[in-house]
């Protein structure tokens, strides 16, 4: 057995490493976006790429999101593999027409003759004290668009593995990067990064018997914290990290819920019309006879993202998660 020296790395560093390795392995990989070149991106995720690969491979584009994604479509039509950076969640909206009308459906409308292997990196979510328009959780829009994969890592290793898989995918991938986990650290050996993770597999982050917390991205660490706190209440919670919202891993999720009989979906995105509704419905349709209680949701409120001084009231936290767990009809058990 080889021993590898584990070093702490941040999620942002793992993402940079994934981009770098992908560019080194495949000359058709091109990074493009606002400030991604000289500056290395506002979150420094593209740091050093322009220097190492030249500005033709890591390009500061004009400031226009539809233009960035629209030109990426043409580049992909010519055989390149563009990796587009949207500077912030809410600034990806100008690119929606290109995303929905072309990126998501080009393969289908051309009967497979013109696939578009584009990765769209979007820093998303709140909790970093960002002012208006810097903290949206926009995943429900992407999930509602057939033809896109929607992927979001919660760990340093997954950030590397899932981004490599996304860039290698022949389908367009919306790669959602939880902003507040950019600086999260984990022991990870950058010289021997974890193998490329297949897109579409959820993972059990913590095993438990009492109930399942189904979550993803920035809410994964919150759920793990809640699971620790729940031990005091006598609950042994399982935490499933979805990692990929599309394709959705019904198998892993349902296997967990069938074991525990109870489930809470946790995410920052608003509850109404949010991912949790879809997930709760899928679980109920498939696991109805195993359920001891209705599937509950802990989500952001159905409000425009709040100002930073109030955001802690909006974000799902440990207490709100434990409250929901407490409402899973435990009395029926005794």
């Amino acid at each position: 057995m080889t021993t590898v020296a584990l070093k702490p790395a941040t999620m942002a560093q793992a993402l940079t490493r994934a981009l770098r390795d992908a560019m080194a392995d495949d000359p058709s990989v091109h990074v493009m976006g606002e400030d991604v070149g000289t500056l290395g991106g506002v979150f420094r995720v593209t740091d050093g790429l322009a220097k190492e690969f030249g500005e033709d491979r890591c390009t500061d584009t004009p400031l226009a999101e539809a233009g960035i994604l629209g030109t990426a479509v043409g580049m992909a039509m010519y055989g390149l593999r563009p990796v587009v950076e949207m500077q912030f969640d809410a600034f990806a909206y100008p690119a929606f027409e290109q995303l929905i009308s072309h990126v998501a459906r080009m393969r289908n409308r051309t009967r497979g003759t013109m696939p578009l292997p584009i990765t769209i990196r979007v820093p998303y979510g709140g909790g970093i004290g960002g002012v208006e328009h810097h903290s949206d959780s926009s995943e429900a829009y992407y999930m509602a668009t057939p033809g896109l994969h929607v992927v979001t890592p919660a760990t340093v290793a997954d950030a590397y593995g899932l981004l490599r898989a996304s860039i290698a995918s022949d389908d367009p991938v919306v790669f959602l990067e939880p902003k507040r986990l950019y600086w999260s650290k984990d022991s990870w050996n950058p010289e021997d990064p974890q193998s490329v993770e297949p897109i579409g597999r959820a993972v059990v982050r913590r095993s438990g018997r009492s109930a399942t917390l189904i979550t993803y991205g920035p809410s994964v660490p919150v759920c793990l914290e809640a699971a620790e706190a729940a031990r005091e209440e006598g609950w042994d919670l399982e935490v499933v990290d979805l990692r990929s919202l599309v394709p959705f891993d019904d198998e892993t999720v349902c296997a967990s819920v069938r074991r525990t009989g109870r489930a809470v979906v946790v995410h920052e995105s608003g509850g109404f019309g949010g991912p949790g509704g879809e997930i709760a419905a899928r679980v109920t349709e498939r696991c109805f006879h195993h359920l001891e209680a209705p599937v509950l949701r802990v989500a952001g409120f159905d409000i425009p993202y709040p100002p930073p001084m109030l955001e802690r009231h909006h974000l799902p936290g440990v207490d709100r998660i434990l409250d929901a767990v407490g409402r899973l009809q435990w009395e029926a058990e005794s």
Binding site: A66, M77, Y78, H102, T110, M114
Partner: peptide, 30 residues
Amino acid sequence: DPREHRVAPLCTPLATQLPHAVGLAHAARL
């Protein structure tokens, strides 16, 4: 098949084909 005669799909959402043309031309030059 758009590649056969190098004709992109007939595009209905107005002007959205224009950035594609730019990207393709740019990629070819690269």
